[in-house]
Design a protein around this nucleic acid. Structure first.
Lengths: 126, 126
DNA sequence: TTCCATAGTTCATAAGTTACGAACTACTGG
DNA sequence: CCAGTAGTTCGTAACTTATGAACTATGGAA
């Protein structure tokens, strides 16, 4: 089994970061990790109402890791993941924060939209 | 020929923006447009020392347009392109600016790196 | 008009990327 | 050593992207 690859800070690219975070599942994983550092992969088998197969999840973690966004370390039988946000923020100040903030804005909008929709369907049926 | 698609501001997604700007050619086009608004597609047939086939370029413009990053308008025989940065900045404050800034940091680093390399090869040969 | 040139789009397809089930490896406790 | 849990790898099907060739759209000249 090949060892985990973590790019050194100067090998991290903007393209890589953007690509990694342009996937909604990976963005959600990253956001969650930013809050609760040290989570394992299988903590995310269910994310935002979707079941993710574990092989897919493994690939998502690899993508985040090889883009330089997270660090993964084996701890016994499981994997502890944490963000590399301080490092990245030093190299690309404000980048990751702006992206996370935008994702949050969007999540809030979607929540509002789904509430509106629910209200409309209730008023139609009732 | 199907008409140009420009998403309305509320249909623009963070995923879409990140994906569009995760390609170095598209990021370069966008950066250039941010400075010199109104450029045409064929202004970019050569970008950062690379020849881009015009069909490929057309697809890149479509990607930027459908992600909501640029607006394209036919003007006579050509297409005038401009960024939608004010709109986007209203919805996702700071996002696009942070990305552009990061791309710039990286471009500067690469320039420094290539200069160092050149100096090394000169000192070896001389 | 008709024809030509310029600017860009579309289409077919080849090349590359991603998703996911099945089979694997790695570690732990009994 | 075995069983169980956590995660990885591999094969392949599905999707995406790049590009040449053929097309559309527009404007000007004959």
């Amino acid at each position: 089994m090949r060892p985990l690859v973590h790019p050194s800070i100067e090998d991290i690219t903007v393209e890589g970061i953007l690509h990694a975070l342009s996937d909604p599942v990976r963005a959600a994983i990253y956001a969650e990790l930013a809050i609760s550092s040290g989570a394992t992969c299988s903590n995310f088998l269910k994310i935002s109402d979707r079941e993710i197969p574990k092989s897919t999840l493994s690939q998502h973690f690899r993508a985040l890791r090889e883009a330089g966004l997270i660090r993964s370390e084996r701890q016994g039988v499981e994997m502890r993941n944490s963000t590399r946000c301080e490092e990245i923020n030093q190299r690309f100040p404000g980048l990751v924060m702006a992206i996370m903030k935008a994702h949050q804005v969007q999540a809030e909008e979607r929540m509002r939209a789904s509430k509106r929709k629910l209200a409309v369907s209730k008023s139609r049926s009732g």
